[in-house]
Design a protein around this nucleic acid. Sequence first.
RNA 1: GGUGAGAUAGUCAAGUGGCCAACGACGGCGGACUGUAAAUCCGCUCCCUCCGGGUUCAGAGGUUCGACUCCUCUUCUCACCA
Length: 399
Amino acid sequence: MLKEALSEIQRGSAEIIDEQRIEKLLKAYFEKGETYTVKAGFDPTAPDLHLGHTVLLQKLALFQKYGARVQFLIGDFTAQIGDPSGKSATRKTLSALDILENAKSYKEQVFKILDESKTDVVFNSEWINALGAAGMLTLTTTFNVARMLERDDFDKRYKNGTSISISEFIYPLLQGYDSVHLMSDIEIGGTDQKFNLLMGRHLQRAYEVGKEQAVLMMPILEGLDGVHKMSKSLGNYIGVTEEPYEMFGKILSVCDELMWRYYELLSAKTLTDIEALKSGVKDGTLHPKKVKEELALEITARFHSSSAAQAAKDEFDRVHSNNQIPTEIDEFSSHEAVSITKALVDCHLTPSTSQARRDIKQGAVRINQEKIDNEALQLESGEYILQVGKRKFAKLKVN
RNA sequence: GGUGAGAUAGUCAAGUGGCCAACGACGGCGGACUGUAAAUCCGCUCCCUCCGGGUUCAGAGGUUCGACUCCUCUUCUCACCA
């Protein structure tokens, strides 16, 4: 039992620091029913969760299954600084109202995966504001610049002469202090968070909390392009609130190699099952597309329902495998005859008439399934199914 | 505070008086091929209903027949020195 739980927890993780401690906590839970806390921090600026976030969330949910209370921390204070991990993007400052608003939509999405009754949603501004200047100063005495500069991204930036703001030095300290205040037993985060996560251990020691949190790091999920990490700003993400059809289609569009990665990090299948699929594909008994469909169905069903997922698949087959028109298309109408180029823009199929003209020239545009090449075409009254490329459809009524 | 360098389309990055709507790369889109894949190959990639025209190269002025390219100021970024 304990072994099983432990191996489930290890699955997919990139690195675990102080694994013995996790084992002890689990043991205490199994033997005495003792609970413990697992902390994970989230940025209040991005309320749109995508599958990248769910890798962490699923791990948290797993901990909940084994006796953990999750400390779902919304870093409303730290967001004002901006995490120096990875890219340094300048942050917009959020109003208190925005943050509350975002937190609300977070909750709606998060509890599709997490058990609400075993989750505490907390905001770090609460205790960091209470810290005051004196407390902040004390915090800074626990660490020094040389060690801060050991951190890889700071090191690189320092050597490159890229600017590092003092407030960025403060960021990891504050994140670590969160662990002091919350007395977390375990903290989980992405591999890019390693430094910040370890800071929690360091500060718990410095503040003599009486324990040092174990740290579990999950790999960063690659986005649809298979290269960069999944992120909203790169546009390579699958949002958890997306429509079943979109979700299904996006998962199916990833390349085969990435599919295995998604299987490992997102699927509920056991590792042995996944291995079986892998070897099936390898020796040709399983078609990779089938395997990918299965994954797409599983994930779509998780955020919607299995019937919705199945419907998405049927629709997908209909449009893409059989080249038929989707069952639901956006409809537009016009009161007078319009040129084809204008119609394409009006129906949001192309961003500009210039683009519309190019698309026609390239043979991308179809009306009622017929490819057209006359860019001066006028649409007289009637009903038309307009199509650009393989994916974009619209229905236009001209009166 | 001083000195120097720079700001070019979604991103990176050429262009230093006309041949520039602006090389190239990436990304994106489309086509072929497929498993809506991936890889590969081909085309497109500021706007405008065609011909042709219009607006761009941080911003504002100026020099010139003509400026992304020269001059002045402004804003911002970066580097070096304090």
